[in-house]
Amino acid sequence: MLPTPEIPLLPESVYEPAEDSYLLLDCMELCISGLQERKYPIVCEIGSGSGIVSTFLKANVFPKGLFFATDLNPNACEAVIATYNANCSQQKFNTFDVLQMSLTLSIRPNVVDVLVFNPPYVPAEVVPDVPTTRDHYTWLDLALLGGEDGMEVTWIVLLNLEKILSRDGVAYILFCARNNPDKVEELMKQRGWSVRVIEKRKAGWEVLSVLEFKRS
């Protein structure tokens, strides 16, 4: 098994890696041989949080990739750097940048070869507003709450995949059962995407799955 990155002490406002994060790592490891056919990919993780997934990918899967890790939360952006430095200090090829950004809004269209997203997937009345101060206590809510069906943020990304991904780009997105991933799969197939479930797993009281999206 590929090593799990060590996570330095995180501020309270940053999501601590949990079952969902580990499922994503396992899925990336499962797909590693296919993924590594890309030697110099542009990799983007949305909502990097602690940075565990991006760091894992840079250290183990795409050492020669160009990485953009995005997060809205300034504390998370710093945590990503800390996690990267704690695990990749021996790396001499640090093509890894952290960008404080909503989703991929400021990334030039059609450049991302590999997109990874562990979204705020918990159903909630609304998606919380972005806090105005750095120390605001609601930052963590932003990492968790996904509005109606927990899908409001994820749908923004799914409906923009066409614009985000490069021609043969691929996206890995995490869902919980309450997001109705079967329905998402069907709708995305109707929109011309090839979709497959990489892994489905019971984690506590949640059932989590990771779906892969490619142009068909």
Binding site: I42, L66, F68, I81, Y84, N85, S89, N94, T95, F96, D97, V98, L99, M101, S102, L105, S106, I107, R108, V111
Partner: peptide, 16 residues
């Protein structure tokens, strides 16, 4: 020891 914004990144970011 931190990760600074690399010149190459300027080629992949635009106005939001």
């Amino acid at each position: 020891n931190t990760r600074n914004m690399k010149f190459i990144t300027t080629n992949f970011v635009k106005c939001a």
